[in-house]
């Protein structure tokens, strides 16, 4: 193992771990999502902390395995991935870059809120044509984190990443 200061190694490990993507929304990295929380290095021992988006989200297991795989291929053998629940994840942690990538992928990003309560959006914008003339079809979508919408202008259905 290379000998570096812990701080340098932590930065390297963070950069490696942050290449792991959400298996269900592959344009978002776990860093964009705010799922990657902390990296600690003690000698050759690496601990990565992640937090689940929703309690039952099965993607967390895939993300955990992918982190171990990515770090193992870079030579880190002793990796512990810890799932931390507190403080609870919120879409307010999603990066600006992540929001742009989501919209480009065809998923409306979550509304911005102040202190997790007050919505700042005028409405849900269609990621295809940009119209705000949209309607909720179902509050539950293909994964825990999404709701199903339809655009009343271009008539295309789309997913909304729910504010949570």
């Amino acid at each position: 193992m290379v000998s570096q200061s812990s701080a340098v190694t932590e930065r390297t490990v963070w950069e490696l771990a942050s290449t792991v993507v959400d298996p269900e929304v592959p344009v978002l990295t776990i860093e964009d999502l705010g799922v990657l929380r902390r990296v600690a290095v003690d000698g050759s021992r690496v601990v990565v902390e992640i937090t689940p988006t929703y309690s039952g989200c099965p993607a967390i297991d895939a993300m955990r395995d992918d982190i171990v795989t990515v770090l193992a291929s870079a030579g880190y053998e002793d990796v512990t991935v810890r799932t931390v629940l507190a403080p609870a994840w919120t879409t307010d942690w999603m990066s600006d870059e992540g929001r742009v990538k989501l919209a480009e992928f065809g998923i409306a990003p979550p509304e911005r809120r102040i202190d997790g309560l007050v919505s700042l959006g005028l409405g849900i914008r269609c990621p295809h044509c940009g119209s705000l003339h949209t309607r909720e079809l179902s509050r539950f979508g293909s994964t825990s984190c999404k709701a199903l919408y339809v655009c009343l202008k271009c008539l295309e259905p789309f997913d909304l990443f729910k504010a949570h």
């Binding site: 955990r64 002793d78 991935v81 810890r82 799932t83 931390v84």
Partner: peptide
């Protein structure tokens, strides 16, 4: 095999 533990902890 490399996963040593995955505790759910606060």
């Amino acid at each position: 095999n490399h996963v040593k533990s995955t505790a759910i902890t606060a």
